[in-house]
């Protein structure tokens, strides 16, 4: 059984663990996913599985996609994701993957798209302190000096305002604290990138 799955972030709440600890958790509705394609070193140069999530109606998929799913003998699905796995792991195309391949105590990493914050200033984007709001200051949330007089230019990569968020982010080392195979729910300790309802990839992480 491979420990990789696609899911949707439901939201956050808190639970009590067995030893009575109050723990923050993210609820993720994940799977059931299906193996759509197995990529191998001989054929594709690297080893991975392609998983599909959320079946859709035939006419909602375009022709190339219909062909792709037909080859796997599956209905078309809304989301496709690839997960790298070792070549020697034996996975059949069409195999179903559910949350029950995870168990409490597992360490996972979660990949998602972080919340887009648009064009953000330097205080929000880089956590700079800004300047004083009073005592005659007229320079409140701006970045102050951009560098030395030395080379008479701004160094590359200098932290400035700009687009913030909306990027692919991976959070590692999250612990699975609960699995509900009936409702396809995973409870992970801690937070996960993205809005509620956004798609996340979950896979086993090295401890």
């Amino acid at each position: 059984m491979i420990k990789s799955i696609i899911g949707r972030k439901v939201g956050m709440t808190s639970i009590f663990t067995e030893d009575g600890q109050h723990t923050p958790v993210t609820v993720i509705q994940a799977g059931p996913c299906f193996v759509v394609q197995r990529k191998t070193v001989q054929k594709d140069g690297y080893s991975a599985v392609q998983l599909g999530y959320l079946p859709i109606r035939e006419r909602k998929a375009n022709k190339p996609m219909r062909g792709h799913f037909k080859k796997a003998g599956l209905p078309p699905m809304k989301f496709l994701c690839e997960f790298r796995i070792p070549d020697e792991i034996n996975v059949e195309v069409g195999e179903e993957i559910t949350v029950s391949s995870f168990k409490p105590g597992d360490i996972v990493k979660v990949t998602g798209t972080s919340k887009g914050r648009g064009f953000a200033g330097v205080m929000k984007r880089w956590g700079m302190s800004g300047q004083r709001d009073s005592h005659g200051s007229r320079y409140h949330r701006q970045p102050a000096s951009l560098g030395p007089q030395g080379p008479q230019r701004v160094f590359k990569g200098h932290r400035m305002p700009g687009r913030y968020g909306g990027k692919t982010v991976t959070i590692r080392g999250l612990k699975v604290v609960g699995v509900d195979s009936e409702n396809h729910l995973l409870l992970l300790k801690g937070s996960v990138p993205g809005w509620k309802g956004s798609i996340v990839k979950i896979q086993a992480d090295k401890p």
């Binding site: 439901v10 939201g11 709440t13 639970i15 609820v27 729910l185 309802g197």
Partner: peptide, 14 residues
């Protein structure tokens, strides 16, 4: 997303 799912999860720990 569905808030009922969250409530359902919370119910188990109340």
């Amino acid at each position: 997303m569905d808030m009922r799912l969250i409530q359902q999860v919370e119910q188990l720990y109340m």
